[in-house]
Simulated scan of single mutants.
Amino acid sequence: MPGIFTVSLDLELYWGVRDKRSIQDYEENLRGERQAIQEMLAIFDAYGVHATWATLGFIFFADIAELRAQLPRDTPAYSNSGLSPYPYIQEHEWGADDQYHFAPELIELIRRHPGQEIGSHTFSHYYCLEPGQTADAFRADLTAAIDTAKACGIEIHSLVFPRNQANPAYLSLLHELGIRCYRGNENALAYKPRNQEQQNAWVRGLRLLDAYINVTGHNTYSIEEYARSRPFNIPSSRFLRPYSPSFAWIEEFRFRRIKQAMRHAAVNNRLFHLWWHPHNFGAHVAENQRFLGRILAYYEQLRRRYGMQSLNMGEVSLLLERLHAS
């Protein structure tokens, strides 16, 4: 079995950063996100790259009125109330910035491109490891996400946990609700699932260093090993950090870090999983797309030389299902 190149994107608009940044502070990224997505889709088409777009349930709706009509009764009661988007829904002055909150047209655009899967990023950007949240509230949230997608003719098979807060206690619930796979974290201490309070400066600094220098290994994975239990874990290998003028002088280190791991997966018939948020590319769009183009051009070299194939998470899960049954 040849190596696999997997891409997943966390499509969340402003909802994904609402508890950390104001719209004004992040507006450049939000304003450029739609252009970035269009350019990503074009380059995916050019290189035959399949990707999973883990899409937040909120953004399926056209406006706040539609969203309010479909809110679940059981919502997360985080100990830190600022993490919940539900007070924001009631208090925000809606209208002028709807494009940063809703995007059903983007979902339809993505669906029209070959090899692109719409997955779930939960309904409300649900944090599965924060104090105060419960399994019942998570069930209500994920059910709302699945039902919202189904109303648009989309069956959800893949999930990405917001902030990578994969909660082992909830995996059986994923399977129960028809989710075949999820994106787990890298197998290194720095990437262990944590809630916000546990994300200290040491952990963040180590992950930043690891983006440029091989600190935690290649983080590629044996397909056979991850076919053993459902729902299938399709772990992350590398977060594609966005371009930063401050770090432009070491861009080649960032590229080489990704390139070496991709080659390791191709040569050894393993899986390499790259992920990012589309809004990461909303600022410095040209620089980010140029860097992505270099990665995909290298994938094309690996495809030709080693037979590496591009599969989205849903397609990987079908492969894992066949191995699981054999």
Rank of each mutant, 00 (worst) to 15 (best):
Q165L: 05
P168Q: 01
A190V: 03
A190I: 01
P193Q: 07
E225M: 07
T143P: 07
P235C: 10
D141N: 07
Y226L: 10
T216Q: 04
C181F: 02
G153S: 11
N185Q: 06
H218I: 03
G205P: 03
R183D: 04
S237P: 13
S237E: 15
E176V: 02
Y170T: 04
G153D: 06
A149L: 07
G153K: 08
L159P: 05
L206Y: 04
L240R: 06
A169V: 04
F138C: 05
R163V: 12
P235H: 09
A151Q: 13
E155V: 14
R230S: 04
P168D: 01
D141M: 05
E176F: 06
C181H: 02
H157R: 12
A151H: 07
E224Q: 03
E224W: 09
N164Q: 04
R163Y: 12
N219K: 10
D141P: 09
L171D: 02
L240G: 10
D147R: 10
S236P: 06
I154A: 07
K192C: 08
A169L: 05
G178N: 05
L171S: 00
E176N: 00
G217F: 11
A149M: 04
A169N: 03
D210N: 15
Q165K: 04
R241T: 09
N219D: 13
E155L: 13
T216S: 15
E186K: 04
N187Y: 06
L159N: 05
L159E: 09
S222T: 06
I223Q: 02
Q199P: 00
L209Q: 12
L174S: 01
P168C: 01
T143F: 09
R241D: 10
L177R: 01
R207V: 08
D141Q: 05
I146L: 08
R180S: 14
I223H: 00
A166Y: 02
Q199T: 11
A190L: 04
R180K: 08
V215H: 07
W202K: 07
I213H: 14
E186H: 04
R183W: 08
A151L: 09
N200R: 11
P193E: 03
L209I: 10
Y226Q: 06
E225N: 09
A188P: 10
Q198S: 12
